[in-house]
Computed example of a mutant assay.
Amino acid sequence: MQSIPADQVRMVVFDLDGTLIDSRKDLANSINAMLAEFGRQPLPEEIIAEYIGDGAGMLVRRALGDPDDEALVESALASFLHHYRVHKLDFTYVYHGVFEALEALKHGRKLAVLTNKPVRPAQEICAALGLGPYFFRIYGGNSFSTKKPDPEGLNFLIHEAGVLPEETVMVGDSDVDILTARRAGTWAIGCRYGLSSHKVESIPSDCLVDSPLEWISVLDMARQKK
């Protein structure tokens, strides 16, 4: 690992689920509601959590056992999204330290969200939980033709913000986020506390943190100079 040059960072891009928010219970409940609708047995929340990170389609496919029946997957996805639209904020909450960290990091920088969750629920969750005002853009898994770990979305944000890859940091709890950063040529911070934290160390990041508050010590220039 190498030290991230905080004074050169002009944009920080965050994953959403498992990085800014704990949405595990609402996602699991919506998956199990879908499974019940299709006459299947519920899955433990811990198992469903392992399926999160690659978008709603892959979450549903994995929960179904990766069937070959694409029509089934599409119907199940529609069912899951219906349940999740209604129940996405039943138990979801912002991780401790996130607001304090965002306050510290926003000065002189652009902050953004790039998630594989569909963009509308991502934006609605950020708005409802008070996260929205911190971000100049919130993009989801259906905002572009590809999802993370393809770097398309991150590259677009870099261009849109008028920054360079080496002036950008990607923060996430999954190997998907770290791989996205690597492919876009940005810095990467891996979060060991999130929903996919069991996978985050499978690809080397530039820094690993155990809580959102540690983003401050890594990236806040004012505190580093004290």
Rank of each mutant, 00 (worst) to 15 (best):
I158A: 00
Q123S: 10
A161H: 05
D150F: 10
K148M: 13
L131P: 01
L131M: 04
G132F: 13
F136E: 14
G141F: 00
E166R: 15
F135V: 04
E124D: 13
V171K: 05
D150M: 09
F144K: 12
G130Y: 04
L129M: 01
P165N: 00
G140C: 05
G141Y: 02
F156P: 09
L131F: 05
Q123A: 14
P133F: 07
Y139E: 15
E124P: 06
Y134W: 11
G162A: 08
A128V: 09
L164Q: 14
P165I: 04
L129T: 03
E124K: 12
L154Y: 08
L164F: 11
G140N: 06
M170V: 11
Y134Q: 04
L157A: 02
C126Q: 06
T146R: 15
E167M: 12
G153V: 00
L164W: 06
H159G: 12
R137K: 13
P165K: 02
S145H: 15
N142A: 11
E167P: 07
A161S: 02
G140F: 03
A128M: 05
A128H: 10
P149S: 03
Y134V: 01
A128S: 14
L131D: 07
G162Y: 03
D150A: 12
V169M: 04
Y134R: 01
C126K: 00
L164E: 11
G140E: 05
A161V: 02
E124H: 03
Y134H: 06
Y134C: 09
I138M: 04
Q123K: 14
H159C: 09
V169N: 06
P165D: 03
L129K: 02
Y134T: 06
L129D: 07
Q123L: 11
K147N: 09
L154F: 03
L154R: 02
E152S: 08
F136I: 12
H159T: 15
V171R: 08
A161R: 02
P165Q: 04
E152G: 01
Q123I: 11
A161Y: 02
G140Q: 00
I158P: 03
N155I: 05
V171P: 07
L157C: 02
P165F: 07
F136C: 13
G141S: 10
A128I: 06
K147I: 10
G140H: 07
P165H: 00
K147C: 10
N142I: 02
L154E: 02
V163M: 04
G153L: 04
Q123W: 09
E124W: 02
A127I: 01
V163I: 01
N155E: 15
H159D: 15
F136K: 15
M170D: 10
L131T: 00
F156I: 10
T168W: 04
V169Y: 03
L129C: 05
K148N: 14
F144W: 06
E167Q: 15
T168E: 04
G130N: 05
L154P: 08
H159M: 14
Y139C: 13
G153P: 09
N142E: 10
S145V: 13
V169Q: 07
R137I: 03
Y134K: 00
H159N: 12
V171W: 08
C126H: 00
E124V: 11
N142V: 08
R137G: 09
D150S: 08
G153N: 02
